[in-house]
Design a protein around this nucleic acid. Structure first.
Lengths: 196, 196, 196, 196
DNA sequence: GATGAATGAGATTTCATTCAT
DNA sequence: GATGAATGAAATCTCATTCAT
């Protein structure tokens, strides 16, 4: 076989991570094998293990990367400025990040495959919920959010965003980020039932 | 060896399915092996294959059973009667069904493990969404639901219910069905933002 | 491939152990692979792992079996009877056990390959030394053994037996058990130097 | 990267050999990897193969060095001078050489790992035995050594020295060279049994 | 000469499935 | 029908060696 051109470790590592994400998106967590990944990356088996201690370590790294990226798009709320546009902006950016590539959704729904990966996802969701809950709590403090358990409400909000994305992926359909954001806003601001 | 009493096929099948569900709840889809299942059921390896073509077939059957059960708790809307209590009743019953046993949540989140199982889940979620969307559509027709894409809105509603249940399971915590139902109602009827 | 006749677990286990010993004798500890062992035993790869948790576990079991067997040929000393023939008998039986099959020597010299195996060998040699030392101590107590550190002397005696056996094996030559026993007796009773 | 200063081939070779010996002492023959050796020596992987054809070749060279060193401490017997002190001196020097460093014992017991290394050890032991046997033969000729097979007797003598050293190493204990030499002398000159 | 990224043959291990009893 | 020993394809992982720079 033609020997792959030697790269600096950082580059090769990133390449392997990217290849792994593509494979994960295509075959799913459970069916993605090291053989798939190295074929996708065009390197030899041993090369893989020069960069990751194990297949599990790779998946762990991929998830950590991904969740960090999503958290990264959230901007802290400036309480001295107008709130709604900031919240809207964050929702829009998160939805954008989740729809930005085909690889995000399957990874974020890959629960129950792997002890370590589950831990990463658990902390991702716990963290996201905690942030939203904190924002709600502040909103309640300044009287712009109705009373109610912030933790539970935060979960509902996350589900409201996550589920349409998840189902669109499951069905292989595309989803309009703008429409989703609008719908979430409707639920937040007035609900969907006409009130006499 | 101690030979298990010959049972009628249906009983044995049900016994295996129940054992499989318990194992799935305990170990998760990916880590449930045939050995686990037959140990739990107390039958020999070969016996398993007298009743299911493969491990995949068993999981498929378990999912079909489970999703049928959840669909079963939903009652058709009687449009001549008062709507809100019927909707409320259905939400309550679905939440109740999902919280009724430890086995439901892990199974409904077991995505990406298995081609066939994914198909079952896909159709479960598609079906659930379609039903809710249809209800919304009727609501819009008679003017009790605001305008908006029923499909997308249905997804949001399902996510609003599913996510808190999912996260509580992930965190190993319990969840109050009543509080969840109340919160969903709040989102539906008035939103969570105070309106000047 | 023709399916191997199903055996009771005990028999199959013993067969695998025996096959492993033959392979170890032929190829040495480091170069004996699971593939070699199953080829020798005529079973499939998976069958091996039905009986031993790992390759290491098999080697451990083989060593435990072997060392137990050698210890088993040693008979306790009856202090009310004549001592020399009893000692002579034990030496003869141990030498006999070590020469009884080609597999003993390579196994007893397989040091440094494997943490667990080393522990078995360590305790084998420690135990053997302790027994000989105890016999020497008793001999000193009743005045038939000269003064001197029993532990060290026991080691020397064991080496005196072990080394010729080891070297004969290394050179691929055979060794007369009787001559070895006689030589050891000479060293014990009078030494090899003529005394003026 | 930090490129090691180019050394003369002999120096570099010696440096690698020394590193290999340290690693061997620490991890044992079977667990010493090329990675360990180059890390210990502080050279790059490729450099290793500029000096040794293979890992096996390095171990071979290390053994040759070591065995040559041990043989080197043995002084030829001057038959015109008094014999016992010369024999005593040689035993003392050999024991001293074997105890001089932690690396000797594990290497001399590294049997069964490697075809070539086994050959080196085989010839080391054969040579040592031959020398001792020759000395015994001369002793018999001049009447200071009792009759008996010199070859077998030489093996016993070597075992008498080697075994205590081996066991002390196995147990991680230290050993007094003087006591060992004295004990060997006792076995040679009078045996350990009291004679009425 | 030195470097270290890349290699790949070969080892161990897993586990869903088969089939003789 | 029930049993459980046997199977083997396929997965993960190791590490001595190569070779372009």
């Amino acid at each position: 076989m033609a020997r792959a051109r030697a790269l600096t470790p950082d580059v090769r590592r990133a390449q392997l991570l990217a290849a792994a994400c593509r494979v994960l998106a295509r075959k799913g967590y459970a069916r993605a094998s090291v053989s798939d990944i190295i074929r996708e990356a065009g390197v030899a088996r041993g090369t893989f293990y020069n960069y990751f201690e194990s297949k599990q370590a790779l998946f762990h790294a991929a998830l950590v990367d991904l969740t960090a990226h999503i958290h990264g798009v959230v901007q802290p709320i400036d309480e001295t400025a107008d709130l709604p546009p900031q919240v809207l902006g964050n929702i829009t950016r998160v939805v954008g990040a989740m729809l930005s590539s085909d690889e995000v959704v399957p990874l974020l729904n890959a629960v129950g495959h792997d002890e370590e990966a589950d831990a990463v996802l658990r902390s991702f969701y716990a963290d996201a919920t905690a942030r939203v809950a904190e924002a709600l709590r502040r909103g309640q403090a300044i009287g712009v959010v109705r009373p109610g358990d912030p933790q539970l409400r935060a979960c509902c909000l996350i589900g409201m965003v996550r589920e349409p994305i998840f189902q669109a992926w499951l069905a292989g359909e595309s989803l309009s980020a703008d429409e989703l954001v609008m719908e979430v806003l409707t639920f937040m601001s007035q609900g969907v039932l006409e009130t006499g």
